[in-house]
């Protein structure tokens, strides 16, 4: 039976990375064990923190790990940075109900980001071999996911109007010289709440969800 029901959680307050990570894990575990058949989507912002994937190269972290919150987590990709002003979207989905294909899933996430930005008249694109969404040579959105028994965890982040200096402490995504960019550089007076609403609608469209 195809199940496309999802719980959606979109707090307005800034959340601690660790709390949301635990929440994602909880939903992932119950989908894996079959205790629940609810997909889970989270949209929000984090306090400043850095996360790295299990295969990440620690040398991309240009500071000592005890200076800042650094979380080593179960996703692909290299180091990244979260902070207020950046919209983070997590999707805990059972891909058995969609398509058991991680490449398909990553491309679908890129599509969601592109559609979101286009609705703000921001022209952006994907780059072959460099997952994420780009405006020319500058990166506006990053993707990193994990998967266990085809149940996904983590997702993507879009820079809306965050302090990009925070990225200077790392080599974002392990790409030397990678420059980050904000939506607010292209669209004045942008409100993250607006972006959140649009991302939610596009996710609904792309994954044909019933939100509860």
């Amino acid at each position: 039976m195809i199940n496309r029901t999802s719980i959606i959680n979109q707090p307005d307050k800034i959340s601690f990375f660790d709390d949301v990570y635990k929440l994602q894990k909880k939903y992932q575990d119950s989908l894996i064990s079959g205790r629940s058949n609810m997909n889970f989507i989270w949209l929000g912002e984090h306090q400043l923190c850095y996360t790295i994937g299990r295969g990440s190269n620690m040398s991309n972290l240009l500071f000592s790990a005890d200076e800042q919150d650094v979380f080593k987590i179960d996703r692909g990709g290299e180091v990244t940075c979260h902070m207020p002003g950046q919209l983070v979207t997590y999707l805990v989905l059972d891909l058995s109900n969609f398509k058991k294909d991680l490449n398909w899933y990553l491309r679908r996430l890129e599509k969601i980001i592109i559609k979101t930005l286009r609705s703000f008249n921001i022209d952006c694109s994907t780059k072959d071999g460099f997952t994420g969404v780009w405006i020319g040579e500058r990166k506006i959105a990053s993707i990193g996911i994990g998967c266990k028994r085809w149940v996904t965890i983590h997702g993507f982040s879009i820079n809306v109007n965050c302090k990009l200096e925070n990225f200077n402490k790392i080599v974002p995504c392990g790409i030397e010289g990678c420059q980050m960019v904000n939506m607010s550089d292209y669209s004045k007076n942008i409100d993250i709440k607006e972006v959140k609403k649009i991302v939610k609608n596009i996710i609904h469209e792309e994954f044909k969800f019933n939100f509860v």
Binding site: G53, R54, G55, D74, R75, G76, G77, L102, N103, Y105, L106, T131, G132, I143, G144, I145, G146, C147, K148, R149
Partner: peptide, 18 residues
Amino acid sequence: RGESVLVVESDKADMDVE
């Protein structure tokens, strides 16, 4: 059975192999 033994990566996605 069902326990993750290793992690495989392709692109930006990690998969636990059980």
